[in-house]
Every structure is written in C-alpha cells, then in structure tokens.
Amino acid sequence: MPAKQPIGVFDSGYGGLTVFRSILNELSGYDYIYFGDNARAPYGNRSFQSIHQYTWECVQWLFKQGCPLVILACNTASAKALRTIQQRDLASVDPAKRVLGVIRPTAEVIGNYTKTGEIGVLGTKGTVQSESYLKEIEHFFPEIKVYQQACPLWVPLVENGEHNKPGADYFVQLYLDQILAQSPNIDTLLLACTHYPLMQEKIKAHLPQNINVVGQGDIIAKSLVDYLQRHPEIEQKLTKGNTQQFYTTTDDTADFDHHASSFFGEAVKSAYVSMK
C-alpha cells in the first residue's frame, strides 16, 4: 500500500478544479491528487457507456495511487457513472473504498436558496438528459418545481478562454433567455457544471438582481467536511501531508497548467498519464 493515502478529485477536464479549490479552503492539510481526463474531454455529449468507462478507468487509476476516497467533481460523470460505480464496480475492486459525486449534496441544500419554490438548472447536455437533478431535488424538496437548460457552448467558451470576452455575451443571454422562458417565477439558477463558476459574474450581469446564481464549490466542500465527520473509518485512512498533485491525460501538460491555473486560482504543475 502506498505511504500516502490522498483524497482523489476527478474531472473530465478543468472544471473540477473550482471544486478542488473550495475543498482545499475547507479541508487544508490533507494530501490530494487531482486527475483531469482532458484528452477525452468534454464528457457532456458522450454516451452513457463511454462516460462510465472513462470515469471508472480514471477512478481505478486514482485507487492505484493510494486514494481511499475519490470525489467525482464533474456533474456529467456524477449523473451517468456514479451510481454504477457505487452499486456494481466497487464491489469488484475494493468495497472499502468510496466514490462520491456532486449532484446529491447539491440537491440536499439547493431548495434552501429559493423563495418562489422554482429553480432552474443549467448544465451540459449529458447532465440535463440524465434528469439526475430533477430526481434528486424532488427527493429532498418534493414541493419545488425544477426546470432544466442545456448550455452546450459554455464549456468550450471557458476552456478556450473566451468566456469573459464580449463575444460570449450572446451565448450567455441565449441560454438564460431559454431557461427563464420556461417560468417567470424562477428565482434561483444552479450552475450544474463545474466550469460555469468562471462565468458567474457574466451570468449575473445578464440577469435581474432578484435571481440567485448558485455555484457548487462551497456546497461540495461543506458536504465533504460533514461526510468525513460522519465516517471516521474513511477519514482516519487519509494522510495529512498537505500536498497537492495534478495529473492530466493530455500530453500537453504546459497547456493544461496554463488553463488549470485560471480554474484553481494559483499556479499548477501537472504530470502526464496515458490511459491507453
């Protein structure tokens, strides 16, 4: 067994770094490994089978690095791969390991943000088509109405550094108009993609002031704190060397590092991992 037992944080690309940043703010001192499957990103438009296969391959790689706990800091992977991994795959590898997602902890609290009882969910095509948020929010807040809108061009805008430029305004307004057209009573918009926080200020600028825009980073971080308090058998396995390692499946690590620093909020130095 490796000497270090870090917390693994996985995403199909860069977006999970916004969640990782929030986790570090709440849970500093632990060892962490961030793994971005950038070579096969984006996941949003891929099939259920591909998303599950890719996600499970990356989770197993993190297990091999010593991670007893992996966070899927990716809405698409959480929507389309997490349940199968938890209910089937873990038993075949190591039932003592844990894989957590971002949808359920978000659904547990999102109802507290609305006064009208109507919420809009903005996400990738894959997340929206899975209807995971509709099902999970209904479980915790059955009285709340939930509307969804896929925003397929937002992730490419963010990953190409175009999200804060004037050219992005049209596509921000386009999807906001579509979600708000579904109901005039929506007062809360959930950014159900970890890329979207980089666009949060621009999104707010295109909305009436009475509409809340909610990101997931702080929600996931606080949920993880609670999880570790409730599961000391997991928490006690985790090593506390205050280290952060970054890995990516793209062989252009310099490009990854450049983009990743924007999401993470500080310089990133990564290493390449081949999934072939």
Rank of each mutant, 00 (worst) to 15 (best):
M1K: 14
P2C: 14
Q5N: 15
G8Y: 01
V9I: 15
S12W: 04
S12Q: 14
V19F: 09
F20Q: 06
L24P: 00
N25G: 13
G29R: 04
Y30E: 02
Y32N: 00
F35I: 03
D37L: 04
A39P: 01
A41F: 13
A41Q: 11
P42G: 04
P42I: 03
Y43R: 09
N45I: 01
Q49M: 06
Q49P: 00
S50R: 05
S50E: 12
Y54T: 01
V59M: 04
W61V: 01
F63P: 00
V70H: 02
V70Q: 02
I71Q: 01
N75M: 08
T76N: 07
S78C: 10
K80E: 04
R83A: 14
R83C: 07
I110S: 08
T114G: 03
V121T: 08
L122S: 02
T124Q: 10
T124S: 11
G126I: 03
V128Y: 02
V128W: 02
S130A: 14
S132V: 05
S132C: 12
L134H: 11
K135A: 11
E136G: 09
F140N: 08
E143D: 14
E143W: 06
W154R: 09
V155A: 12
L157Y: 12
Y170S: 13
L180R: 14
I186M: 05
T194H: 05
Y196E: 08
Q200C: 06
P208H: 08
G215W: 02
D218V: 10
I220R: 05
L228Q: 09
Q229F: 14
H231S: 11
H231I: 04
P232L: 00
L238N: 10
K240H: 06
G241W: 03
T243L: 07
D252W: 03
T253I: 09
D257M: 00
H258P: 05
F263R: 06
F264E: 09
E266F: 00
K269H: 07
A271N: 09
